[in-house]
Amino acid sequence: QHKQNVGVSTGCQSGCQTCSVYNGCLTCKPKLFIHLERDGMRQIGVCLASCPNGFYGMRSPDRNDCIKCGSECDTCFNKNFCLRCRAGSYLHKGKCQESCPEGLVPSDTKRECVP
């Protein structure tokens, strides 16, 4: 009998509703986000109150997922709208750019285009 260790809130990491040996968390407790964490060749599920840097939380009736932001973005509202850019690019109306539109200048501390 294959060692199938599916724990319902027992023996699982905090925040998990169900989990298994190989996949980690499979479902989370209400309102929490499931994040798929890469650890070398492994990829396991963990449950979080808010998604880590580089991911945003997408809520839906049956599940809340952490989804990857676009490239160049550290934190985002959704795939196409960034809140904070990575070093070297500057935020303007949700987009990360290497230079700023006319009338605005790049601020390295804020990583934003500012007046």
Binding site: N23, L36, R38, R42, Q43, I44, G45, D65, K68
Partner: peptide, 26 residues
């Protein structure tokens, strides 16, 4: 390389791998 079953939903996008890889899903 392992992939969590939920990583193959349309919502999430698995990060690009650098090397040539074969995915295993439990």
């Amino acid at each position: 390389m392992q992939s969590h079953p939920l990583s193959l939903c349309n919502t999430s996008e698995d990060e690009r791998q650098d090397s040539i890889f074969i995915t295993i899903v439990k």
